[in-house]
């Protein structure tokens, strides 16, 4: 009972922190999208438009109201699912954002399904071969591909698998009515750059978690009491070693989404990243703001989920401070 209460209060504190973060994020997005650009009507109509037309457009868009009123109407509508009207498409933003988010999740899912097991496996293998050549190759290789911009690895992978070997399509736009496996086939190449970036992080966390766990007293005890090595690894080492990795995987969602902007642009894929990119290109502020705030929400939810999972798996964290 006490434990459940502790989890609940821990979680309540986390949720309220996320809400504060999201509130601040919404203010920043609002400032960036509606205050900094200055005269929205002028920005849309161009420098030669008639002042009356600019004023009329500003009035229609509601950007001539006081800032507080604008913020409140924007955020209260957003919470109710009304993300405003796109300047470019002249139609509600929400369906675009939802479609795009769905597409991005497909791409992200492919990358995650590939990278989580392989990354953890890589880290575990590296730790079990500590300071031997295999460890060096995995660690240094992982580090090198992690620091490269996604469009650089993307271009190199496109050249290798799309242009020279011709194994995979170089665009992620699959034919209409494509089935699950066809879609998957088109998503492999775009997910590889994301895979490479994430692989380094996950493998590094898994490796250092493993090293710490292998070095611990409980592992020594388990070995000394005569348990088989395999049991020691599976039951004692891995359980403790992989806890921090879970948190890293969740925090990587943020980076993953940053990467999506680039990857989706490079592969012409209709996801939230390319939505933001197109909106930015066209100065479509309602679309841009909603896209970014949506990403913030996805990130907050992922972080919360990771915290929750972590606290359930690790009883020690529940009762300690939230630092």
């Amino acid at each position: 009972m006490q434990g459940v209460l502790a989890i609940l209060s821990f979680f309540a504190r986390r949720v309220s922190l996320s809400l504060i973060t999201l509130f601040l994020l919404s203010i920043m997005v609002f400032l960036g999208g509606q205050v900094l650009p200055g005269n929205v009507g002028r920005a849309i109509l161009g420098p030669f438009a008639d002042q009356r037309a600019v004023d009329a457009l500003n009035h229609t868009l509601g950007v001539d109201r006081p800032l507080l009123v604008q913020y409140w109407s924007w955020i209260s509508n957003f919470v109710q699912g009304d993300m405003g009207t796109s300047y470019i498409f002249r139609s509600p933003v929400a369906p675009f954002v939802i479609d795009a988010l769905g597409n991005s999740m497909k791409l992200a899912a492919v990358a995650f399904v590939l990278v989580v097991p392989i990354g953890i496996l890589g880290g575990v293998i590296a730790a079990l071969n500590l300071n031997r050549p295999l460890d060096r190759i995995i660690s240094l290789g992982g580090l090198s591909v992690t620091v490269l911009p996604e469009f650089v690895t993307g271009i190199i992978l496109i050249l290798i698998f799309g242009v020279w070997l011709r194994w995979l399509p170089i665009s992620a736009a699959w034919p209409r009515n494509a089935g699950f496996f066809t879609q998957l086939y088109y998503l492999i190449l775009p997910s590889l750059p994301l895979f490479l970036v994430l692989f380094g992080y996950i493998a590094r966390m898994a490796r250092s978690g493993m090293i710490e766990a292998l070095d611990s007293d409980y592992t020594r005890t388990a070995v000394l009491k005569g348990l088989p090595w395999r049991t020691v690894i599976w039951r004692h080492v891995l359980r403790n070693a992989l806890l921090p990795t879970i948190t890293v995987i969740a925090t990587q969602t943020g980076y993953l989404i940053g990467g999506l902007v680039v990857i989706e642009t490079l592969f012409r894929y209709q996801g939230i990243g390319s939505l933001i990119f197109t909106a930015a290109r066209g100065k479509d502020f309602p679309m841009l703001e909603s896209g970014i705030l949506t990403i913030g929400i996805v990130y907050a939810v992922a972080t919360l989920a990771a915290d929750f999972l972590y606290s359930v798996l690790n009883p020690r964290i529940r009762l300690g401070s939230d630092q």
């Binding site: 973060t21 999201l22 902007v261 907050a300």
Partner: peptide, 13 residues
């Protein structure tokens, strides 16, 4: 809050 979204997207905005 600033760090909750990727740098590339903050920069874009």
């Amino acid at each position: 809050a600033f760090m909750a979204i990727p740098v590339v997207i903050v920069a874009l905005l």
